[in-house]
Design a protein around this nucleic acid. Structure first.
Length: 314
DNA sequence: AGTAGCACCTGATTGC
DNA sequence: TGCAATCAGGTGCTAC
């Protein structure tokens, strides 16, 4: 369940189960899930076993669980994390050890946690295998501000260092972000999807935000004015907050929270998946075309490639 | 330097 | 019915 609202739903669902839990066993069921480690699954298991998870943090679509190695909670802050990316189809599922089912065919790793006298099973499922698990160092943020949502530590994993602050991060520099979105000759949709500028926006919410702000996905970034860029950021935040309030967007069982339940935002979508259907603002049929390799849905009537000239401007 | 294109996968659905 | 083509919510690398 891959964009910011869905990953945040997972993070928030995970946090109460994994915080202060110690990893007691790790079973890698598909080697490629730990492909970022030179030693693969065995290195992943070895580095994770015995560590205690101190929380659940997210920046954009990137998720990590900071690790502490000592049993002493007064020990210094975490310097490593269990990092995860859900890719297109990743899921975390939590069970009590007694209720855990046989691993699903898509289960790529199963971890056992011990927390408050109870044993828990944490499964990572991923049909398409674009997701991954990783153990890596945490780095200090250049600005000394918190690295992501869910923890105050000014740290991010190495693999997240190049990822921009996300659209709902209170420390996002909105002016710098809208400037970045107005730079270059790519279509604006491609900039919304560029995780190094503002993170967390994926193919669904890019189309939704562009529809809300009435901007054509192919409008060149350099033709976006500051007011429009700022309106686009607001639209992105609005649609993501609404989606988050409903547990995210899901169309099927591939995208579920840690309890296996689906979010309800799919019924709130105005553009994504509505090609050929009438625009709810103007009634004209929405277009659907592939742009930059991603299917894109928009209203060619409401969403103009160039902003309309104001009356009085020559 | 910025950008487009492709590679990485599995499985469900569509069309012939 | 069977099989090939197409499609899917992401990211990173490579080559222009």
């Amino acid at each position: 369940m891959p964009e910011l609202p869905e990953v945040e739903t997972v993070r928030a669902g995970l946090a109460p189960f994994v915080t202060d839990a110690t990893v007691t066993s790790v079973e890698v069921r598909r080697e490629s899930v730990a492909r970022l480690l030179p030693g693969g699954g065995s290195e992943f298991a070895a580095r994770l076993a015995g560590a205690t998870i101190t929380g659940a943090v997210r920046r954009g679509k990137f998720l990590w669980l900071p690790l502490r190695r000592s049993e002493d909670p007064a020990d210094a802050g975490a310097s490593e994390s269990l990092s995860a990316h859900l890719g297109m189809s990743g899921q975390f599922r939590v069970h009590t050890a007694a209720d855990a089912p046989e691993p699903h065919p898509h289960c790529r790793a199963r971890m056992t946690l011990h927390r408050a006298g109870e044993d828990l099973v944490l499964d990572f499922l991923d049909q398409r295998t674009f997701g991954y698990l990783h153990v890596e160092d945490l780095l200090h943020t250049p600005d000394g501000l918190p690295g992501g949502h869910g923890m105050a530590d000014p740290q991010v994993p190495l693999s997240v260092a190049h990822i921009g602050r996300d659209a709902l991060d209170p420390h996002l520099d909105a002016r710098a972000a809208s400037r970045a979105w107005r730079t270059g000759r790519r279509g604006i949709k491609q900039l919304l999807l560029d995780q190094t500028l503002v993170s967390g926006i994926g193919n669904i919410y890019a189309d939704e935000a562009l529809w809300l702000a009435r901007v054509n996905p192919e409008r060149p970034a350099h033709a976006v004015n500051p007011a429009t860029a700022s309106a686009l950021l607001s639209a992105t935040q609005d649609v993501m907050r609404s989606a988050l309030a409903q547990g995210g967007t899901s169309f099927d069982a591939l995208y579920v929270n840690v309890n296996g339940q689906s979010g309800y935002f799919a019924r709130g979508l105005e553009a994504y998946g509505r090609g050929g259907e009438p625009c709810r603002r103007c009634g004209h049929p929405l277009r659907r075309e592939t742009i930059g390799g991603r299917s894109t849905h928009w209203c060619a009537t409401c969403q103009r490639r160039y902003s309309p000239r104001r009356a009085g401007a020559h």
